[in-house]
Design a protein around this nucleic acid. Structure first.
Lengths: 335, 335
DNA sequence: TACCCCATTGATATCGTTGTCAAAATACAT
DNA sequence: ATGTATTTTGACAACGATATCAATGGGGTA
């Protein structure tokens, strides 16, 4: 019924092991033998049985994406990037939603990896920063690549974006547009990006000799509602800033809504900027000035270097920082 | 190092096969023996090796989600629903993005299923309606459950929502609000939901003795841009409707943006309604009147009945139609 | 020519389960 | 008490690949 190595070996008149060597690209196979085998493989339509390979070699050709409830569009982009990398290498992707607050997160994941013989993991924030968890992975010799960690360890695989720099640039741009009174909505405290973006903001303010006002700096958690609530608080007072920089687009949308409900016109009465360039940024009116991170590309790279690593390929086996782009849209007005 | 069945069998003083029987919940194991084995399993922390199980039994305890570029938040909801079902049963989920237009879609998927010994598939639109593809799955005895198919076949597993009825209700509600001139933006022609929603709209119009105007009925494809373009066309003319019902929220947001850019006030100058209650519906201003489908629950149910089927459980092994809720928000005005 | 080295190949054990089939133990009927 | 049916159990093969290690053969060196 199904074609096995044995069938191929008979057809090619070589031993089973030699066929195995060829399909695994092992060294020391005569060029001619290799050709013969490949012809038979093609002719018979042989495809190795992954379960058998996995059982014997302890590799599954599966990588897993671990995430804890991120933004939906972010997740979709990450997935899509990983997926494209998998397609090239023939790997498969299994996804695992997990609870970063769970006390047995570590065990759950170790069991999961062990059960499926997962070859490697890709972690998204906030998992990227759970040192305790990462150490456990190291201890168990589980390969992984992290997306957007707060501390970039030289010995581990990661991809990151220049959040600090991008926030600094966007803030500078807001200032260039003539704004002197600028509010800021912070992101989820557990996400490394939050503090990076905030620091970029603050440093830009200071370097341009402006001042911040604590009433205009609110703690959010990246959700629409937290942005909305922050907006309600800010607009409740008499003294409102001329621009607000929210550390992601969902919160920026929240701010916009609260402003519009209050009767404020955007950008005439107040300018708004976000971060991420998520779909909503361009689908609301006025469209949001924001920062675009190449999320899909980052995830793609993470998957590539991860797979390169456990395939022993050193070339391009490099962690990398990606650059974000400023996207100027209608929500930012020149004063 | 790792605990195998053999270890358990020694510890429990039974044969290997008996242990296998216990962990697979097979019949005809004496109650006392079963207990003994379970004690040993627990004591030693035994976990069956999935690769070996899969190799021998041709089952992988993996199901796969197939999708082709759906809306990001839809995808996330579907995934999440499936995921919760998997957690209960110990199954794992692998995802597979595919191209429904590709000529070798069928082969790609068959190979994928065969390679990983995938136990079953869950299909989202527009794959749910590709009869040719489904027939190929049937022919190869691959189990699957479809989400929102256009034709509900009694012999296959599906979950659906009452799109027709919901569109009818929402249209009636718009009419009740005093609107007599109502536009409609159709969805992606390949998605079954598109025609159902359109039919619901038309029938409501007719049953309320109203008339449609072809200038106000535009073909879209569920994307923001297609909604935006449709809006631009409609608002370009002198004669505009008092309300527009877009068959999903992204397109509704597109309409809103085009209206607002034209200087039209929502809902004072024009009312807008969408469908799906995607995140954007509540994050724009004014918030969108729409229809909420229990997407996550639907996907959850699809996964459950799928797994129940190949586990031979007949109970609750039923396809099901889910009800959607009308969500009335600010974008709809009473005339 | 004799010897060694290294590239190439193959025979066989092995990974950890489940399937097959028959044996043993028990229950039931006569 | 005996025979039959049924439940319970186990020995061993099988799934389809890779790992180990030894065998083979050609080339180079002394």
């Amino acid at each position: 019924m199904t074609v096995t190595i044995k069938d191929v070996s008979k057809d090619a008149k070589v031993s089973i092991k030699t066929v195995s060597r060829v399909i695994n690209n092992e060294a020391n196979v005569a060029e001619e033998t290799k050709k013969k085998v490949l012809v038979s493989v093609k002719k018979l339509g042989f495809r190795p049985n992954k379960s058998a390979q996995s059982l014997r070699s302890k590799r599954s050709f599966i990588i897993a994406l671990l995430y804890d409830n991120p933004n939906k569009s972010y997740l979709a982009d990450v997935q899509s990037g990983i997926f494209k990398a998998c397609k090239l290498t023939g790997y498969n992707l299994v996804i695992q939603e997990c609870d970063y607050k769970s006390p047995d997160l570590n065990n759950t994941i170790l069991e999961f990896v062990n059960d499926l013989k997962i070859d490697g993991l890709i972690l998204t924030p906030p998992l990227s920063d759970m040192d305790d968890f990462l150490k456990d992975l190291d201890k168990n010799k589980i390969e992984y690549a992290v997306i957007a960690p707060s501390t970039k360890k030289a010995e581990s695989l990661y991809v990151s974006s220049n959040d600090y720099e991008a926030a600094y640039k966007l803030t500078s741009e807001i200032i260039k547009h003539g704004h002197k009174q600028i509010g800021f909505i912070k992101g989820h405290p557990k996400h490394s990006a939050s503090s990076l973006r905030f620091n970029g903001f603050i440093d830009a303010i200071v370097n341009h000799s402006l001042e911040t006002n604590d009433d205009w700096i609110k703690q959010g958690n990246f959700s629409f509602k937290s942005g909305f609530d922050a907006g309600v608080e800010i607009f409740h007072s008499e003294n409102i800033p001329s621009a607000i920089f929210a550390s992601n687009d969902s919160m920026a949308a929240g701010i916009m809504k609260s402003a519009q409900m209050k009767g404020l016109k955007i950008p005439d009465d107040i300018s708004i900027a976000g971060f991420d360039d998520s779909p909503i940024a361009d689908e609301i009116w006025p469209a949001l000035t924001t920062v675009r991170q190449p999320v899909e590309k980052m995830a793609n790279h993470a998957a590539k270097i991860l797979m390169a690593k456990f395939n022993g390929i050193e070339e391009s086996n490099q962690s990398k920082e990606f650059k974000s782009d400023l996207i100027l849209r209608e929500s930012l007005k020149t004063l």
